[in-house]
Design a protein around this nucleic acid. Structure first.
Lengths: 249, 249
DNA sequence: CGGCGCGTTGAAATCACTCAAGGCACGTGG
DNA sequence: CCACGTGCCTTGAGTGATTTCAACGCGCCG
């Protein structure tokens, strides 16, 4: 029986495990804390439920807090003054937000499906980091993998064709999304517009590329929000630019 | 009189200051070490002189070392199998290389002008980090600012026009290059092809955009490798997408 | 002097974009 | 139950920003 049920059943221990009811207590960044240190953080942490469409971080705002996503999916994005939007990343279960931060947030964040997240005070987080080196070590690891992903995305945005971008996206999201890892299904909780804003394309181009891949038998699209990878090796080649791109839509 | 001169004059102290002859001993990441800790690193550090055009880091190679640039400029890039290239960043004086690393390098690095750099063993670096938390703190700060820059570059690559990209590049490089900060000059040690590979454009488009800005009086180009910012406010607006982009080349 | 690397410029081609229309699923209200 | 509106996706046709292809200029160097 999960701890959360124990607590909800009305038997709060005298010294409850901090975050005891949290499904992701031992996943992502939180796993690096022992109970004693986590309780220091937990006292300043708040669980928030974010509705779909709600913006919970705004680019340029003072960065006084960090977030860890418990459930759901959010998009992190930057905008130009005329409304052009670039999605930096999709954040999902277990992901930690708040590294691309100086004094202000470098991006905005919006829930694209209902999100449950844990909000930490940045001040207390920093204080804890001072006395608990393992935390900074984990943060550094996290930042480095984000950097590797960002570099890969720069290659995509600067040099790949529309079809290559879409193939790359399907594979990347399949590997990243906790609910589809290891299987041929790709859940797409984001709209075509979100995908376009992530890949530096337009909505029409994304749609055309997806349906071209479908017509060629590389993927199935049982519903707009679900893609099945039928020919992963081919897609992997396409994503790295190996295929003849002369095929028309 | 700088310490380096003292040592070169033939008076080595019995316990020499580690890295005593290094111009950038107190700049960038190295500044966070005291002499005692630095000497631990210095014993494993090697100064290397890299010729222009030489590739000193290869994407996919085991990442067993870090580098700090003492002088000169390098490009960090990724390539697709057919030769398409995306430059991730230009690294210059004081910059630290090696964060976008898991077990292997995420990018290649090539000197675009002669580079003098300091190479550390990654193993010893990690060991030192364990006993010296300040180091990881600084690394984390560095990684976070790289992440902010990477996000800005994704916006550029995904959503800006050619002219906006070139204006952004001139301002960014002017702010980054140690030899031109605070004045209107922008040294361009990289070729037009390098600029194109950084901005996700072709060499011709970069050339056309630069000369269009020149004809409109926003910049001067006294030589291909030197640009003077004549109208910085206008360029800043252009870089953030505020101007009418309908002007033809 | 001739070759080479690099940058510039012109003309034509193209990939992705824009504009426009239509389909489908879903929810709401008559 | 059906009509209708709305949001999202798809598809077609035409446009356009950037690329491609090609030529030329210039400085450098053997």
């Amino acid at each position: 029986m999960p701890i959360s049920n124990v607590r909800r059943a009305g038997h709060p221990p005298l010294a409850p495990e901090p975050c005891g009811g949290c499904d992701v207590r031992h996943r992502g960044l939180c796993d690096c804390f022992d109970d004693v240190h986590l309780s220091l953080l937990a006292s300043a942490a708040v669980v928030k439920e974010i509705d779909k469409g709600q913006v919970f971080v705004r680019e340029g705002e003072p960065a006084d807090r960090f977030h860890k996503i418990r459930h759901g999916t959010a998009k992190l994005f930057k905008t130009l003054s005329d409304g052009r939007q670039q999605i930096i990343a999709f954040a999902t279960e277990d992901d930690f937000l708040g590294l691309a931060v100086s004094d202000v947030f470098a991006f905005s964040a919006e829930a694209i499906e209902p999100v449950s997240l844990c909000r930490f005070s940045r001040r207390q987080f920093r204080a804890l980091a001072g006395s608990y080196p393992e935390l900074e070590h984990r943060l550094l690891q996290t930042a480095c993998s984000e950097l590797v992903l960002a570099n890969e995305q720069m290659l995509l945005l600067g040099r790949k064709t529309a079809r290559e971008r879409v193939a790359s996206f399907l594979l990347e999201w399949n590997a990243h999304d906790k609910r589809s890892v290891g299987d041929r299904h790709v859940r797409l909780p984001m709209t075509r517009l979100d995908i376009a804003d992530y890949l530096g394309l337009t909505i029409e181009t994304v749609s055309r590329a997806l349906n071209a891949l479908r017509r060629e038998g590389r993927i199935d699209i049982p519903s707009p929000s679900l893609v099945v990878l039928r020919d992963r090796p081919w897609l992997e080649n396409a994503a790295s630019g190996l295929h003849d791109q002369a095929l028309a839509f």
